[in-house]
Design a protein around this nucleic acid. Sequence first.
RNA 1: GGAGACGUGUCCGAGUGGCUUAAGGAGCACGCUUGGAAAGCGUGUAUGCGGGUAACUGCAUCUAGGGUUCAAAUCCCUACGUCUCCGCCA
Length: 419
Amino acid sequence: MLSIKFIRENIDIVKKAIKDKNEKTDINNLLELDKKKRELQFEFDTLRAEQNSVSKKIPELKKEKKDVSEILIKMQNISKKIKEVSRELSDTAQKLENELLKIPNVPNKDVPIGDESANAFVREWGEKKHFTFQPKDYLDLSEINDLLEIKRVVKISASGFVGYRNKGALLERALINFMLDFHIQKHGYTEVALPILVNRKTMTGTGQLPKLEEDMYLIEQDDLFLIPTAEVSVTNLHADEIISEKSIPKKYVSYSSCFRREAGSYGKDTKGLQRVHQFNKVEMVRFVKPNDSYEALEEMLVDAEDILKSLGLHYRVVTLASGDLSFASAKTYDIEVWAPGSNKYLEVSSISNFEDFQARRAYIRFRDEGGKVKFVHTLNGSGLATPRTFIAIIETCQNEDGSITFPEVLKPYLERLKV
RNA sequence: GGAGACGUGUCCGAGUGGCUUAAGGAGCACGCUUGGAAAGCGUGUAUGCGGGUAACUGCAUCUAGGGUUCAAAUCCCUACGUCUCCGCCA
């Protein structure tokens, strides 16, 4: 979230950010609550100060055998008043907090204003592969090579879920291991494996709640949510902590299943692997000092690109425009990989700088050189999501007879079973 | 799931209603001492919201929320967490 101080002093910037991000939050109510809260806080502090000082004198007066009954009656009233003010104060503070959680992050100044069509091209690597034959799409290739479980999975679960089988399952598992090893060995990340069920506080910390509750799977019995990305559990790992200056920056990589209800996106890419309720993803998360976060964003983008390069997949990078930017993000790059059989670019990675937006919510701070406590900046990026990477690989690596020649870098992960 | 014990600052740990502005210790930082270090001695050592140019200063926070009281780390209730024993499962 944004600090109330920042909002108070930059009303226009905040209003513009809300508009540019296509949000509808009204901040006037918030500003009123802020004013009311500060007035109540002042009243509460004043009353408490009196209560504290008088209460301190009571035992002394008693010792001197003085009559305190009159004071006690007076204090009863103050006590009652304090309780009233305190109730109103915490009520107002709670309302203010709820409003604050609904204010989106402010886009960085480099972010183009507009909807998806304003996304800005950054660079590309490789080129669209040229085939001497008509390339098949991944659904056909999966059929030929026995790679996916589609119909049966709907039977055992629900529509929107898919499964892998045979070499498809092996390829997916190989991808996960390859990507994890790559980030650990070549990019210096530390692996963490964390729960995929998390509580409400955690979901709020990274900004999924309260806005996106509809998009989340909820285990009502225990009030636990299935994570939509490992970003949630990894970023919140250091919630409520003051990280020592020495142990920052922190670079984590984590693989997890991700769960998305995709409420409201029915009818879009419903077939196959492109948009699914459950998928696996390797995620990178960084905690850095404020001044380093944009440099870290560029590094993470390269970290994700390195995976695609080593797999030999053509891709392009875009900067998301304000309207396409997520609620919590200040700046996001998307990487889109080329899928020649499907004849389109598929989004395989989002790399975002949240600045201190998540750190404020999750209360993640560090102590700087001068001993001052400040909020960290958090970043994350997919490195990468498996389903669409899977599509790009088998479509790019297909032969005319429908067989697939897997990328060299995956061989160590595949060859022990002679795939 | 049943029974019990417990939750205090960076850590250990005292604290059963007002003498706690949380004792004492460890750690850490700085200073003195030293040729240098150790020991010793001294000083400092939370966070948030306010007020003040500043020195300072008001309020809150002893897991969280509620209650009792003029006054709560301390008493009561609830939740969460930790530990021990039992049950169940692997």
